[in-house]
Design a protein around this nucleic acid. Structure first.
Lengths: 130, 130
DNA sequence: ACTTGACCTTCCAATCGCTGGAAGGCCGAT
DNA sequence: ATCGGCCTTCCAGCGATTGGAAGGTCAAGT
């Protein structure tokens, strides 16, 4: 299977597959005589794993660890769980930060007439000193 | 005032101030004979404005627009409001995406024993085919 | 046989918003 | 005069892609 087909089947585009190879996230693929990368079915599963982990917001670094754990059939589930919990915490932190941003902005937007007059509490708030 | 003092007073570090100048977010500063950037009090307010807008998660592009509106005393408040509303929408989208990630992960983590056994629903879920 | 077009290859650059370092100049105090 | 702490520029890197250019390969149609 060429890279294009793998891309289609895994949901990870070719460019990204090559990139993942270059950063060592996926092992170097076999090559045909003409230099084309050759893949097999197991690569589909592998890339889907990565795609799903990305979909859950894991970083490349975390995914590397997850892959290691995934392949290591004697891993302890607590290692995976702790990785997941750490990531959940990070997500929660980010979420509440953004929540605060959105709340502040909603408040400001609410008090802004939003008409053709120039008075604007949003800008006023941003320019407040100290 | 030199850049270091401005940094202290505005809460935006010198490196970043120079960077902002280089991307045209802040106007080029006057220079002393020896080439040092010279600032005045109004620059403090200006940089604080940027800092607060960043704190609300606005992108550089959006901040450029906000600055334009801020300076234009005859702007219509609806322009500012619509910019804010767009940004709120973007924040909400991102928040709910992350919320979904966190929810899925929490669910998976919950069903994972988290002990020394290798069975792990988190990894199982990631490797599911199709 | 030849050409087309869809694939594949590599490499380099851009995105966004910084942050870091290196190499050098300037300034004020001791 | 020398020291530390500023300041200057430029270049490079982060993370995770995405884009493009320039070129090789392959299979199908004419």
């Amino acid at each position: 299977m060429n890279i294009g087909e793998l891309a289609k089947l895994s949901g990870v585009n070719s460019k990204l597959i090559r990139h993942y190879e270059s950063i060592g996230l996926v092992p170097k693929a076999m090559r045909s005589d003409s230099g084309y990368r050759i893949y097999s079915k197991t690569d589909i599963q592998f890339l889907r794993f990565i795609r799903r982990a990305r979909g859950l917001g894991f970083s490349m670094k975390e995914i590397k660890k997850l892959i290691g754990l995934w392949r290591n059939k004697s891993r302890a589930s607590k290692e995976v769980k702790s990785l997941a919990m750490t990531h959940i915490k990070a997500l929660e932190t980010k979420i509440s930060e953004m929540q605060e941003m959105a709340d502040s902005l909603r408040l400001l937007a609410k008090s802004c007439h939003g008409d053709s007059r120039p008075e604007c509490p949003i800008l006023n708030r941003l320019e407040i000193n100290e």
